[in-house]
Design a protein around this nucleic acid. Structure first.
Length: 288
DNA sequence: CACTTGACCTGTCCGC
DNA sequence: TGCGGACAGGTCAAGT
């Protein structure tokens, strides 16, 4: 579910909502969702206050005053929803998707000193939260291998194209989903950006021209920036830190639009499997 | 090494 | 309505 724009939306929401709050208690059901030792939780989590909320790729990091960090991956169906006083007030336009919490998919509940709570919900239990020293976060295998952040100002089109050299003989779709090539791109924005750049997802990386890489770079950044602006994509599960939907799906041009008209040429959008994932293209605009 | 496939889980939807 | 199977936005381990 959550890709870079969704995780970034959650990060921004949490940054508004939980900075400086002190953690009073934590409850969790399955060790898989929160595998830390009880002693570490007592010493470094309970009583700590939140100093920052950061993101790298699709990973969230909640920094604590104890020099520990709660590292979180939402995977497919994870949600982080804060319940307390709303900072947005009554007029917030996004429709709420989340009801009474905790519910049956709540895996972890963090309670703050003021009685407000942060819920980690995860229907499929793929996601996790881990408590670890802040200084050790960069040493996680994933952090050492993950590629550059595509939306950073200093990330250039040339660097973008060069990153793909390591996956020369695979499909462009598999490569763009590879987190060691570029950080944070998932199935939705892979399909959306490949459509925008008019590149068939099964094209091999070593057949993509420099001009096509440049277009893909530009379109990928445009799509992800628009998605952040729209608060992410809600198909089924994704919600922001207030439990509300994102609206990018209203602007999607191919993703989950099989059978509908391509916005560019009116050809019917089709769906098939590529790189093991459901893949949506316009067969007129994107050819092998 | 590079690349692909299955596994991890639960819920939903579709065809019979 | 019930049931089996396919599928779902991510990542890893294990396989070729």
């Amino acid at each position: 579910m959550p890709e870079l724009p969704e995780v970034e939306t959650v990060r921004r929401g949490l940054h508004e909502l939980i900075i400086d709050r002190a953690i009073k208690s934590v409850h969790h059901d399955t060790p898989k969702s929160f595998p830390n030792a009880v002693a570490d939780v007592q010493e470094f989590l309970i009583g700590a206050s939140i100093t920052d909320v950061r993101r790298r790729a699709k990973v969230l990091m909640i920094d604590l005053s104890t020099a520990y960090t709660v590292v979180i991956h939402l995977k497919m169906t994870g949600q982080l929803v804060y319940r307390g006083e709303s900072v947005f007030g009554a007029g917030h336009p996004n429709e709420s998707l989340t009801g009474e919490l905790p519910d049956r998919s709540t895996r972890v509940t963090l309670e703050f000193a003021d009685g407000s709570r942060l819920f980690f919900n995860d229907q499929r239990k793929f996601g996790w939260m881990k408590l670890m020293p802040t200084l050790e976060v960069p040493n996680i295998d994933f952090m050492k291998k993950v590629g550059p952040e595509p939306l950073e100002a200093e990330f250039t089109a040339n660097e973008f194209a060069a990153r793909f050299a390591r996956r020369a003989k695979t499909s462009i779709k598999a490569a763009i989903l590879d987190q060691t090539v570029i950080a944070g791109v998932g199935n939705i924005y892979a399909d959306e950006s490949l459509w925008a750049a008019k590149i068939h997802p099964k094209r091999l990386v070593n057949t993509i021209t420099p001009n096509e890489f440049e277009t893909l770079y530009t379109e990928l950044r445009a799509v992800m920036n628009l998605a952040i602006q729209k608060g992410g994509s809600t198909d089924k599960n994704y919600v922001n830190a207030e439990g509300k939907r994102g609206s990018y799906m209203d602007f999607a041009r191919v993703f989950r639009r099989e059978g509908l008209a391509c916005p560019r040429c009116e050809t019917e959008i089709i769906k098939f499997k590529a790189a093991g994932r459901g893949t949506h293209i316009c067969p007129h605009c994107q050819v092998l």
